[in-house]
Simulated scan of single mutants.
Amino acid sequence: MTENPGAFGEVFGEKSARRTGVERVVRAPLPTVYGHFEAIGYLDHDRGEEQVALVHGDLGTERVLVRLHSECLTGDAFGSRHCECGDQLAAALRAVVAEGGGVVVYLKGHEGRGIGLLAKLRAMALQAEGLDTVEANLALGLPVDARDYGAAAAILHDLDVRSVRLLSNNPRKGEALVRHGIQVAEQVPLLIPPCESNLTYLRTKRERLDHHLPHLDAVARLS
């Protein structure tokens, strides 16, 4: 997968229609409040998405600290307290810098666990009426989790990453990477203190989606 600065000009042409997989397009320095990153942009020809990997330091190939972060406009950009996504993204970027090297892959097309922004907002409206996040998706006739991690694995392959220490509470992410040829040497918890607005959401993730959230036990004892 070679870098191709002209790829954007071909997105709408016949050439791109025949392409498959993930193609590296551009890399650029990205200084942030967390530290200095290199933003590496990719085109996912299978799904028509633009993806980015934020790389800090020298990666190596084994046991690389990695976060696969699903796009969440409401949490990442607007600071929603309905979820912990924005805080997780910030914590992951800080962790990678503290480690001295690592990758945060920001996954477009994963909004609302893959159902899209407007559908997610509809699901949130149903949750305000008393449904949990799983029940809300099903009530809308949508999958509980429609995310695919093939592009994330392809990006890691392009970066020569063979095994990862995965910053995630979701075991399904690790299982997906293994299916795509990336070994998971360790799953590193990314636990954010809950608040009143997201406690029910987090409990549902633990009880119905198998997320490892042991820090909620302390909250349960206090409630």
Rank of each mutant, 00 (worst) to 15 (best):
A176K: 09
Q187G: 00
L159K: 00
R179K: 14
R81A: 01
L59H: 03
T74M: 10
V66T: 01
V11F: 15
E186N: 09
K120N: 08
R94M: 15
G41E: 13
E84S: 09
A90Q: 10
P29T: 10
L117W: 12
Q187K: 11
G150T: 02
F37Q: 05
E50F: 12
V219G: 02
T74Y: 10
R63D: 14
L159T: 00
N198D: 14
G9R: 08
V55L: 06
D145C: 12
L209E: 15
C72S: 02
V64D: 04
Q127V: 08
L190Y: 12
Q127T: 05
C195D: 15
Y149G: 02
N198A: 12
L30H: 06
V144H: 14
G150N: 07
A125F: 15
R47I: 01
R221P: 03
A77K: 02
R147F: 04
R203I: 11
A39H: 07
E111Q: 09
H110V: 01
L166Q: 03
C72Q: 04
R172V: 03
G109H: 11
D87I: 08
G150L: 13
V96N: 10
R122M: 11
L89D: 02
V184E: 12
G13N: 12
R67V: 13
L68H: 01
K173P: 03
E14V: 04
V144A: 14
H110W: 08
L166M: 00
V26P: 01
L117C: 06
E196N: 08
L140G: 04
S163H: 05
E111S: 06
A152N: 06
L117A: 05
I40K: 07
E14S: 08
S223V: 06
E23Y: 09
G109W: 14
E10A: 04
V66S: 02
V97Y: 12
A53Q: 03
V178I: 09
S197Q: 15
E84C: 08
R122N: 05
R172G: 05
L89S: 05
R147S: 02
L202M: 14
E38V: 11
C72G: 02
A39V: 08
G9W: 15
L30A: 09
D148P: 02
C83S: 03
G41D: 10
G130N: 11
F37P: 07
D160K: 05
E23K: 11
F37A: 01
Q187V: 07
V161M: 06
V97D: 03
V184H: 09
G86Y: 11
I115R: 01
F12S: 09
Y201L: 14
L93M: 14
A77F: 13
D158P: 01
G181V: 15
L121P: 00
V96L: 13
V178T: 09
L89G: 04
E71L: 03
K15I: 03
R179I: 07
C195A: 13
L167S: 04
M124K: 08
I182D: 02
E14R: 07
P189G: 05
A220H: 08
G114S: 08
A91D: 12
D46L: 00
E135P: 04
D158R: 05
V26R: 10
E84Q: 10
A152V: 03
P171D: 11
